[in-house]
């Protein structure tokens, strides 16, 4: 059942959106904060917790400051897109659903070699881990496939199934492009034809310079401390809001601060000011924020609390 091949980056994104919408996922929008991966979106991290069913899919711009290469490396970027699918409980036919999505973006299973190669996932900053695979298409990793076992130190019950597609790499493969900057972003032949590089080469250069050499490490350190303090302060507020008299646990605002701290840590890391031993302690601090956020989310309605 070969599908007509997509012809540009956004075509692939749109097809994934349509496919997962057809499978019943809520198509969410990217989270409006800087994150290192789609997993950080509260739609994954927090919604994987608690007993309530959930199904969502979304594009998430992701930032990895240390991967910046001034736009010169064919496939390394400090800002890139991930496509994220999360379904709780993980459906019985999750692998088949996933393979259907590859078909939807024009990968013909009759001609390609798809394999599930062991890869255990762990996020020390989120206190999360799961088991699964990296999915190979003709020897190339096209997705991460994970069954979440723990998030924020809590056992996931039921278990969420998570898919992460590295969109640029996947699209380059499907479109047969060798350098990410040469990849058509919109349809070739559009009124204004745009390549990936037309949109992102300049920003890759700007951020690479800033990430590696210019970012003020003192300010970043201060921001890290502030985010950490604010996260803790928010969660120390009483569960009942004195103004409305209602129980309003502020899990999401607190988690925003946790995301901030995590990204600030990544920036500090890119500036090379975090030594090997300090590294562990920073990761531990973010993890402890993530854990308290997870605890508080479980006290909310979305987290399954009935109080």
């Amino acid at each position: 059942m070969a599908t007509v091949k997509p012809n540009c980056f956004q075509d692939i994104i749109l097809r994934l959106q349509n496919y997962w919408a057809e499978q019943g996922c809520a198509i969410l929008q990217p989270y409006d904060m800087e994150v290192g991966a789609g997993t950080f979106h509260p739609a994954t991290t927090l919604r994987a917790l608690g007993p309530k069913p959930w199904a969502a899919a979304y594009v998430q711009p992701s930032r990895r400051p240390t991967d910046g290469r001034y736009g010169e490396n064919p496939n390394r970027l400090q800002h890139y897109y991930q496509y994220q699918v999360i379904i709780k409980p993980s459906p019985e036919n999750f692998q088949e659903l996933y393979l259907g999505s590859l078909n939807a973006i024009g990968i013909d299973m009759e001609l390609h070699d798809i394999r599930f190669v062991e890869d255990d996932w762990e996020s020390p900053t989120l206190g999360a881990w799961g088991l699964g695979w990296e999915v190979w298409c003709d020897g190339m990793e096209v997705s991460q496939f994970t069954y979440f076992q723990q998030v924020g130190g809590h056992d996931c019950k039921p278990v969420s199934g998570e898919l992460t597609y590295g969109l640029e790499r996947l699209a380059m493969y499907v479109l047969g492009v060798d350098h990410v900057m040469d990849m058509p972003f919109n349809s070739p032949g559009s009124i204004t034809e745009l390549k990936y590089g037309d949109i992102f080469r300049q920003t890759e250069q700007e951020y690479s310079r800033w990430n590696f050499d210019v970012a003020d490490t003192n300010i970043l350190l201060q921001h890290f401390e502030d985010a950490e303090a604010e996260c803790k302060r928010i969660l120390n507020e009483p569960d009942v809001d004195p103004k409305t008299g209602n129980k309003i646990v502020m899990a999401h605002p607190a988690y925003d601060q946790c995301i901030k701290a995590s990204h600030l840590f990544n920036l500090l890391d890119a500036r090379g000011v975090i030594s090997v031993t300090e590294r562990q302690s920073y990761i531990g601090r973010v993890r402890s924020l993530a854990k308290t956020c997870a605890d508080s989310f479980l006290k909310t309605e979305a987290g399954g609390s009935s109080e």
Binding site: P89, E92, L131, G132, V159
Partner: peptide, 17 residues
């Protein structure tokens, strides 16, 4: 190393079908 999946409590190396 084993795991749970879906709503089950059984643990297996990957989902048992």
């Amino acid at each position: 190393k084993s795991m749970r999946w879906g709503s089950k409590s059984l643990k297996w190396v990957r989902p048992l079908h």
